[in-house]
């Protein structure tokens, strides 16, 4: 286990707490952006009909790394560290 942590370059990472109140936030009407998306969808559809159907990137949902036994080294630690972040958020509150 110890060895796996080395690639991360900062030893044992533990997120003890996170406190991020008052994040700058604004809400905007989404309809213009969705209209733009519609334009784009129609364009893409036209294109794909003209050409052979394009292979769209279809990323598969990744398993949560905390549960993954197969990930080693760096990836494992990122997952673990991020898991700790999530936990710290739950405990302390993110200001959301």
């Amino acid at each position: 286990m110890e060895e796996e942590r080395k690639p991360y370059g900062c030893g044992n990472i533990e997120v003890n707490s996170v406190h991020i109140p008052g994040i700058q936030s604004e809400r905007i009407d989404i309809s213009k952006d969705l209209d733009n998306a519609l334009e784009l969808i129609l364009l893409m559809q036209k294109k794909t009909k003209q050409e052979k159907p394009a292979a769209l990137p279809v990323p598969k949902p990744e398993p949560m790394p905390q549960k993954s036994q197969t990930r080693g080294g760096f990836l494992f630690l990122m997952g673990r560290a991020a898991g700790l972040v999530a936990k710290a958020f739950k405990e302390v509150g993110s200001g959301r």
């Binding site: 997120v15 003890n16 406190h19 991020i20 710290a88």
Partner: peptide, 12 residues
């Protein structure tokens, strides 16, 4: 905490 400062404690 009192001053609403954004911070994180990492490895103490």
């Amino acid at each position: 905490k009192d001053q609403k400062i954004k911070y994180a404690e990492i490895n103490s």
